[in-house]
Design a protein around this nucleic acid. Structure first.
Length: 260
DNA sequence: ATTGTGGCCTGCCCGC
DNA sequence: TGCGGGCAGGCCACAA
């Protein structure tokens, strides 16, 4: 699913194509897609209003309306944002070949006849009005070395698990975590609190470089490690057989030769 | 409190 | 060719 680069492309799409258009209708095609713990009436909050700004915190896209309400969109593992049937990114696995309307879960109609839709075959995504933004930690694009040190803290959890904890560091997904740790030469399973200051700085540098690279390439699935993320995969750097494990509950590939 | 696990869903790929 | 099992980039509730 979308990691930060994909959600950023959705944000850019919304910013360029959805701002200033009056919303005329809300279609919740899948009732479970609505996360309505705060009891806010989605249609009531959106209809008649227009979006003023498109923001993003981690993997959460946020559209602020001129009525004061904010539409929050999570894309789960297979979600895509469509505006007037243009997609935010191409080449997303699982959805690239199939944008069948039956997989649309949430649609906004604009008074000008256009539409904004969330397409999500696997239905792990969610929409919510006025989501609690404080649930999310510092955004991966903005984290400082000092903040990264605080994210890791003295935790005994695996390093990778901490990087994936959205309440601490927002935006890191499984692929980006593997790619950055591979580049930084750090073992994903190491206790987070065991990193020395120099290693934290190194990790910060490689996280930043990784996200910049993937943003410029246009997708979290375009990393250098990704082609080797398969059985019998070999480290693109030194040719060693990659190790495949579950770390932090997620499938993890790493190089036993240069990641410590 | 922190850390780990199962479950949510659907589609694809592989092996039999 | 058909079918079952395993697997997938996220997140949440719950258990220990």
């Amino acid at each position: 699913m979308p990691e930060l680069p994909e959600v950023e492309s959705y944000r850019l799409l919304a910013e360029g194509a959805a701002l200033g258009r009056r919303i005329s209708a809300v279609e919740v095609l899948d009732p479970r897609y609505l996360r309505s713990g705060n009891g806010i009436d989605v249609a009531g909050a959106l209809v008649g209003h227009a979006f003023l700004a498109a923001r993003r915190i981690g993997k959460l896209a946020l559209l602020d309306t001129d009525g004061g309400a904010t539409l929050g969109m999570h894309f789960g593992m297979t979600g895509t944002l469509l505006v007037d049937d243009r997609a935010g990114v191409d080449g997303l696995l699982y959805t690239a070949h199939d944008r069948s309307p039956v997989h649309e879960r949430f649609v906004l109609r604009f008074a000008d006849g256009g539409r904004l839709a969330m397409h999500d075959p696997r239905r792990f995504g969610r929409v919510e009005v006025d989501p609690d933004e404080s649930r999310l930690g510092v955004d991966l694009l903005e984290v400082t070395p000092r903040q990264l040190g605080e994210v890791l803290g003295s935790s005994r959890a695996p390093l990778k698990a901490r990087l994936l904890d959205q309440s601490l560091l927002a935006g890191t997904g499984n692929l980006i975590a593997d790619e950055a740790l591979w580049r930084a030469g750090l073992d994903p399973a190491r206790q987070a609190g065991s990193l020395r200051p120099a290693e934290i700085r190194r990790l910060h540098r490689h996280l930043a470089a990784t996200i910049d690279l993937l943003l410029s390439r246009g997708g979290s699935h375009l990393g250098d490690l990704l082609p080797a993320r398969r059985p019998d995969g070999r480290c693109p750097r030194d040719g060693a057989a990659l190790e495949r494990r579950t770390v932090g509950g997620r499938t993890t590939f790493s190089c036993p030769l240069h990641q410590h």
